[in-house]
Design a protein around this nucleic acid. Structure first.
Length: 420
RNA sequence: GUGAGUGUAGCUCAGUCGGUUAGAGCACCAGGUUGUGGCCCUGGUGGCCGGGGGUUCGAGUCCCCUCACUCACCCCA
């Protein structure tokens, strides 16, 4: 084989593409009912946007970005996530002047240079929303419940919502210090990764899976008990609203987000059958990102769904796509007439296929069956003399003779199409 | 970046102790007597056995290197 797609970058082929279309259209319907408007954002941005927002010491920025120089020598990066480009656009176009709160959704590819594995590829797709213009925890609950409503409508089972508050610019640094104080004495007994985390992001130690580390960190107090009063109130109200909306959730005090810009609310939806990369969607509140990008002091909250991970959770079975009509012909005159009729029926919005060369009726019927045609039209010399055609329903086998006229044929075929 | 596993047809896999022209099922294409699909039957297309080197009279099979893929760690959607 001469050429292959790049490592971790996949083609999406039919019938998979049908499931993608389905998910995207359901998402759009759900978002519409919450007032989210679509925003389409570029795939490459100035590198600085990601470095400043995601954080210089995060893995994404340190080793996972597709960054290169354009012809003018500027450093540009293929977006590893959607929030930073969104906030850049929000500020650039002064979208805070739209009636508040402003709610947007986006969908598209993201790029991270990582070793691929189950549920992780270098080009992957996210469907995300962002809601800005209010600090009220009511909108946090609304955003989370919108996510759960969407996942439910897509038919996901065996998923679990985890929520946490990771504090704000005031109480989180204080909590970090508390964690470091508690771990300092025993640090030598922790795993190598945790020793590294201690310097870079000590909160991650609370999420380590190594058994020895789990036992040794027991004494560390939970962040939930050390939030400042404002953050604490926010978190409690969020839970209150989630309960009002009957959204079931689990508080995970060890839930940490990997991106620096998150404040207060953090949440994640985990899929039970997903393997090691089990977050199907995640999000959180960002308190000062808009300001850091030179915009007004408005905060936002958003989430992103990993579409590929979502797909691996949704049961398949969208494999029954086939033409509404397959047109069989016999004889030279019928070939011409059927070619014209194919065109006419397509103009009416039907999916119509026909044979491209002369072959036996048996062979044409076989082809119609293989491509899962719902109906077959037989146009032979005998029918042509009477200016009629035979319409056959492939599932039920019944045949009807009808006049050779597009409108009449559509009438015969219609009930089957509508019932699909 | 680290570790483990797997590479034979488009897909799923056989291939004996190293033996002659590499197989099956599915899929695809063409047929199975005047114009009716699915099941069945016949035939056909499709392989540098991931690549390179070595051992041997002889390698899909044994050895070395390499590449690719997969899973996991890290991290994340």
């Amino acid at each position: 084989m001469k050429y292959k797609a790049l490592k971790g970058i996949c083609d999406i082929l039919p019938p998979e593409t049908y499931i993608w279309q389905h998910i995207e259209s359901v998402a759009k319907e759900v978002f519409k009912t919450y007032g989210c408007k679509e925003i389409r954002l570029p795939i490459i941005e100035s590198s600085e946007i990601f470095i400043r927002s995601i954080g210089e010491t995060t893995d994404i920025v340190e080793k996972e970005m597709y960054t290169f120089q354009d012809k003018a020598g500027r450093s540009v990066t293929m977006r590893p996530e959607g929030t930073a480009p969104f906030v850049r656009a929000f500020v650039e176009h002064s979208l805070h002047n739209e009636p508040s709160p402003q709610k947007y959704y986006y969908m598209g590819p993201m790029f991270r240079y990582e070793r691929p594995q189950a549920g992780r590829q270098r080009q992957f797709h996210q469907i995300g929303i962002e809601a800005l213009g209010t600090d009220d925890p009511k909108i946090d609950a609304e955003v989370i419940s919108m996510l759960m409503a969407l996942l439910k409508r897509i038919g996901l089972k065996d998923i679990e919502l985890e929520v946490n508050s990771i504090g704000c610019g005031i109480c989180r640094p204080e909590y970090k210090t508390v964690v470091k104080d508690f771990l300092r004495e025993n640090l030598e007994f922790f795993c190598e990764d945790c020793k590294r985390r201690y310097e870079i992001n000590p909160l991650r130690i609370l999420d380590c899976k190594v058994e020895g580390c789990i036992g040794r960190r027991q004494a560390v107090p939970s962040i939930v008990n050390l939030l400042c009063d404002d953050c604490k109130d926010h978190f409690e109200e969020l839970q209150h609203y989630l309960q009002l909306l009957n959204v079931s959730y689990r508080i995970n005090p060890n839930l940490v987000r990997g991106l620096d810009y998150y404040t207060r609310t953090a949440f994640e939806v985990k899929g039970k059958s997903l393997g090691a990369q089990n977050a199907v969607a995640a999000g959180g509140r960002y308190g000062s990102l808009v300001e850091e990008f030179g915009g007004p002091a408005v905060s936002g909250i958003g989430f992103a769904i990993g579409v590929e991970r979502l797909l691996s959770l949704v049961s398949e079975g969208h494999n029954d796509y086939g033409p509404d009509i397959f047109l069989c012909f016999l004889g030279d005159e019928a070939e011409k007439k059927s070619f014209m009729l194919t065109n006419e029926l397509r103009a009416e919005g039907l999916w119509v296929e026909t044979a491209y060369d002369k072959s036996s009726l048996r062979s044409q019927m076989r082809r119609a069956d293989r491509i899962k045609a719902k109906n077959v039209i037989v146009m032979g010399e005998e029918e042509l003399k009477k200016k009629k055609v035979i319409v056959k329903n492939m599932a039920g086998k019944e045949e009807v003779e009808t006049v050779l006229e597009g409108a009449e044929i559509i009438k015969v075929v219609q009930k089957d199409i509508l019932s699909v």
